[in-house]
């Protein structure tokens, strides 16, 4: 049994929230640079230039990449041979509050969804935990902006529906999101499980590096087809046209019920932000 002090979790979460908000993911920056090279629309190119420059300014000046510093979604894979000294939930919350205070990040969370009074701490986050073998803890935080979260959708298909209907649905979700969700997008898709499982898969899908494909060949083919279809929409960076509507499409699947085929689409913007560390 290995003992982890909750202070280590607090400090790690703090550092990860700051890193995620200030340093654009390397794979996302690389994908933006690739897209800039391929883009032929002059307005789209100028916008991509500004987006790339934005990432450099953010890192240099320690400024958030985007003023929407998001709601924190944290993923903890906890080794079953770990004993945690202290309150793990409190430790995560403290780490986030410290990051948002010390990093001068925006506090965007309201305590009650209907009364809507800001908690002024960016708390609480959404926390997912998984128990895994071993004596390590994998901590990952997504900071999710709501321009793109608001365009995310889910739909329960018939089990007999062909893949083409799912593809039409994804394309429709992207078309309807237009320029609101800050394209070029990274599109996370969850297929299978229950309603909630599909939705959580769709968010986990955006953790995969842009440009990597699902290991299952038929899902990788689906990702490639969808990537082509959404880019054919020609929404382009900030809706100004061009071939760069999406930087990537990432699909995760899970076994499901004989009667169902849940599909969730989690739209993420060009400022797709997360950071992780194993302690």
């Amino acid at each position: 049994m290995r003992t982890i002090n909750s202070k280590l979790i607090t400090d790690t979460v703090r550092a990860l929230c700051i890193k995620a908000n200030i340093e654009l993911r390397k794979d996302v920056l690389l994908a933006l640079r690739r897209a800039r090279k391929k883009e032929t629309n002059s307005k789209a190119r100028r916008i991509l230039d500004i987006i790339i420059q934005n990432a450099l300014i953010a890192k240099e000046k320690r400024l958030p990449i985007c003023q929407d510093t998001g709601m924190v979604v944290s993923y903890l894979k906890i080794g079953q041979d770990i004993k945690i000294k202290g309150d793990i939930r409190k430790a995560i919350l403290e780490g986030i509050a410290n990051a948002y205070r010390d990093g001068y990040f925006r506090k965007s969370i309201v305590q009650d969804p209907l009364i809507r009074k800001n908690t002024n701490t960016n708390l609480p986050p959404v926390i997912y935990t998984k128990i895994v073998p071993g004596n390590k803890m994998d901590i990952r935080v997504i900071v999710k902006g709501f321009g793109s979260e608001n365009s995310s959708r889910t739909k329960m298909f018939r089990p007999t529906d062909p893949s083409s209907l799912i593809e039409d649905f994804v394309v429709r979700v992207v078309r309807e999101s237009g320029s609101k969700s800050c394209p070029p997008l990274y599109i996370g898709i969850g297929i299978g499980g229950t309603l909630d499982k599909a939705v959580s898969l769709s968010k986990e899908a955006i953790l995969r590096p842009v440009g990597n494909y699902n290991k299952a060949p038929h899902i990788a083919r689906l990702e490639k087809r969808l990537f082509k279809k959404v880019n054919n929409l020609k929404i382009g960076p900030m809706g100004m046209g061009g071939k760069t509507t999406a930087l990537g499409v990432s699909v995760l699947t899970y076994p499901t019920h004989i009667a169902g085929l849940p599909v969730a689409v989690n739209i993420s913007c060009h400022a797709t932000r997360d950071a992780g560390k194993v302690v």
């Binding site: 987006i51 934005n54 958030p64 990449i65 902006g145």
Partner: peptide, 8 residues
């Protein structure tokens, strides 16, 4: 330009 808050 959305998501370019540092630049803007």
């Amino acid at each position: 330009i959305g998501g370019a808050g540092a630049y803007l």
